[in-house]
């Protein structure tokens, strides 16, 4: 193990001598929050009963599985993380954790998470968890991310798996409602990330990541945000229209969707130059990004509330 000394914020940084917080940061805890939340919603809405200990183990397995995928992602993306301002301080590019250690950590946690899910619940949930990890690492990180501006559209499926996994943990199968939850998270991902990339595209351009604003320009990205938001709002109403959720969810989904459409409209009509570059510091895109986070938490919460009321 290397013991090269590097200065970081006036603190002493020793390669291979990372803090507990550095190892935890490898798990992408902010992404994990969303994954745990949507997995919990799937688990709560599924028919049947799961012992609380097993339910806790299932949620822990989903969280650890997502964290493992995040660690392997940081291992693979360490070269582009080093040149992006937003990610340059992550443990690997900052030199606090060696790349090989992060890879080993991620693989070990991924295997442990799938085994835990299998032991605590059933083979279907364990297989879906394994599939979601492989999808995030193999399809999104290694294949799509550096090749196509559609990276987050297809790759977004990886983040949409948890409600199905939570549902399968209880019921042992897959039904239409968790598939619709998957669809909602799937169509939510593009407007969420493209709003962020509208003002962070300098980072992606430096790293050579073909995010939509880098490849197609800001104007096209604003249009795409609008299109995907319309599709998202339509998809969000399906549980209600198909009779799988009641009016409490339906009215909430409609109100939240109208709010999202308003945000997308403001992004589209933001004061901009001929290339579509914002003259307002991308204020509408920043607002849309924040709104999208609240939107997903609220719409899934209302689906659960509605489920308990029915």
């Amino acid at each position: 193990m290397s013991e090269a000394v590097s200065a970081r914020d006036g603190a002493i940084g020793l390669v291979g001598e990372a803090t507990v917080a550095d190892w935890f940061a490898l798990l992408k805890p902010r992404v994990m929050t969303l994954v745990v939340f949507s997995g919990l919603i799937g688990l709560l809405l599924a028919p049947g009963h799961l012992n609380p200990v097993l339910a806790f183990a299932a949620i822990l397995a989903i969280a650890v599985g997502a964290g493992a995928a995040g660690a392997i992602n940081m291992w693979y993306d360490r070269d582009i993380d080093a040149v992006m301002r937003r990610t340059a301080r992550r443990p690997i590019p900052a030199g606090r954790i060696e790349a090989g250690e992060a890879l080993g950590f991620g693989i070990m946690l991924a295997v442990a998470a799938v085994i835990l899910m299998g032991l605590a619940t059933n083979a279907t949930a364990a297989a879906l968890l394994a599939l979601s990890i492989l999808f995030y690492v193999g399809i999104y990180t290694m294949w799509l991310k550096r090749r196509t501006p559609q990276n987050i559209v297809i790759g977004g499926a990886a983040g949409a798996f948890p409600p199905i996994i939570g549902w399968a943990a209880v019921s042992g199968d897959i039904a239409l409602l968790p598939v619709l939850m998957f669809t909602i998270v799937f169509f939510w991902t593009p407007p969420h990330f493209w709003s962020l990339s509208l003002w962070a595209h300098g980072d992606y351009a430096r790293a050579g990541v073909p995010m939509l604003p880098v490849v197609a320009g800001a104007r096209s990205t604003r249009r795409q945000i609008g299109v995907y938001t319309v599709v998202l709002v339509a998809a969000s109403l399906l549980p209600w229209l198909l009779g799988l959720a009641g009016p409490v969810y339906g009215v909430s989904a409609l109100a939240l969707g109208l709010g999202f459409l308003a945000c997308a409209w403001r992004v589209l009509t933001d004061r901009q130059d001929a290339a579509g570059v914002s003259q307002t510091g991308d204020r509408p895109a920043r607002a849309a990004f924040k709104y999208s986070l609240a939107y997903l938490f609220l719409i899934l919460t209302m689906l659960t509330v509605d489920g308990f009321l029915r």
Partner: peptide, 30 residues
């Protein structure tokens, strides 16, 4: 500083190991 980091990591590892053992015991009982 190196010693402090190593000690903190060792304690964290202990907590994780005890937690995993307790979790697997609880799963087995259920």
């Amino acid at each position: 500083a190196l010693q402090r980091r190593r000690r903190a990591r060792n304690w964290a590892m202990l907590v994780v190991l005890v937690g995993v053992a307790a979790l697997f015991y609880a799963i087995a009982m259920v």
